[in-house]
């Protein structure tokens, strides 16, 4: 308890020190003359607001991770789509059909793909436990390598290394619609019982989801692309919207690092809400323009 309090105090002192000593610099840097001077320097003083945000963000995540590792119970609300994952894999097992998992169609340098690959690890662990065939078509070689790594790891963790099939994660095609055409053909021929789409999707989202629907599969989708989400909502049984995709991995694994990260993000969201409310009040009473400039994007 004393140790946790001390750690909390250390973090808070760090944050407060940053705010007290660095904020005046931010305000100073907002003046155009200074901003012009600092642009060429090694340290962008005008971007210090981003630094403060990152420090607060990382501190919150580290603090919650520490708490999670110490065994402090951290509550996460239910996300309906994720509760359905295990049920859907169970259905595939009963029907003797495969589970199709698509970690999006973007490269590994997209954060949604990383989230998708991370969820793939959790899904692969369930398929390994149930001995359910898993099929993961990918569009990029790096996603292929990452996918193979996490699926193999999941099978090892489930104690089913011998059941791991390297070809379960396979490169299909490098072009968006040839990938879609191939996966659609696979869906109609193999009729997977469960289709899980988690990652970055574009114009092919409805083509995939509609074909999966026609094949009679249970479908769970998740993406952070607002323009594709309506199609998934229309054609899938469950949809994870936006940040739910990033929360999914923490929710499924309940690992301290992941849970701590999610709780830290929630804390920052609350800070943002408070910051917005203060800003709205100041703007309404036409005072504190300096405060609004703290959030200037440079």
């Amino acid at each position: 308890m004393i140790k946790t309090t001390r750690t909390t105090l250390n973090y808070l002192t760090g944050i407060l020190t940053t705010i007290i000593f660095v904020f005046p610099e931010v305000i100073r840097a907002q003046s155009e003359e200074v901003a012009e001077i600092v642009t060429d320097s090694l340290f962008r003083v005008d971007r210090i607001n981003a630094l403060i945000f990152v420090v607060v963000f990382c501190s919150a995540i580290l603090l919650y991770t520490k708490w999670a590792k110490a065994g402090k119970p951290l509550f996460l609300r239910k996300i309906p789509g994720l509760d359905a994952v295990e049920e859907a894999v169970g259905r595939a097992t009963e029907m003797g059909r495969p589970v199709l998992f698509i970690p999006g169609i973007a490269e590994l340098d997209e954060i949604e793909t990383i989230a998708g690959v991370s969820i793939l690890g959790r899904v692969a662990k369930i398929t390994a436990q149930y001995d359910t065939p898993l099929m993961v078509p990918v569009r990029y070689p790096l996603v292929l390598a990452a996918g193979q790594e996490v699926v193999e790891q999941a099978y090892i963790e489930a104690g089913k290394q011998d059941s791991y099939d390297k070809d379960s994660v396979r490169y299909v095609a490098g072009e968006q619609f040839s990938f879609t055409a191939t996966v659609n053909g696979y869906m109609m021929r193999e009729r997977p019982a469960t289709n899980i789409y988690m990652g970055a999707f574009f114009a092919e989202s409805l083509l995939l989801a509609e074909t999966g629907n026609a094949a009679g599969s249970i479908q769970i989708a998740g993406t952070a692309r607002p323009e594709q989400l309506p199609f998934f909502i229309a054609a899938c049984d469950y949809t994870l919207m936006g940040e739910e995709l990033y929360a999914a991995s923490a929710y499924l694994s309940r690992e301290p690092i992941m849970t701590g990260g999610l709780k830290g993000q929630d804390f920052v969201k609350m800070l943002i809400i408070v910051a917005i409310i203060i800003g709205v009040l100041l703007a309404t009473f036409d005072v504190g323009e300096w405060y609004i400039h703290l959030f200037e994007e440079v």
Binding site: R47, N49, A50, F53, V54, F57, L108, D109, E110, I111, I114, L142, A146, I272, A275, I276, G279, V280, L282, A283, T284, F285, D286, I292, F295, E296, E297, V298
Partner: peptide, 30 residues
């Protein structure tokens, strides 16, 4: 690749979306 992606995205999303969204929401209701 995965580490660099997470780091780069943290900053680019902060500058490209989070800060502008916060600032644009601080509107006067007078």
């Amino acid at each position: 690749v995965m580490g660099a992606t997470a780091g780069i995205f943290l900053i680019s999303e902060l500058h490209g979306r989070v800060l502008p969204q916060i600032q644009d929401t601080m509107v006067s209701l007078s």
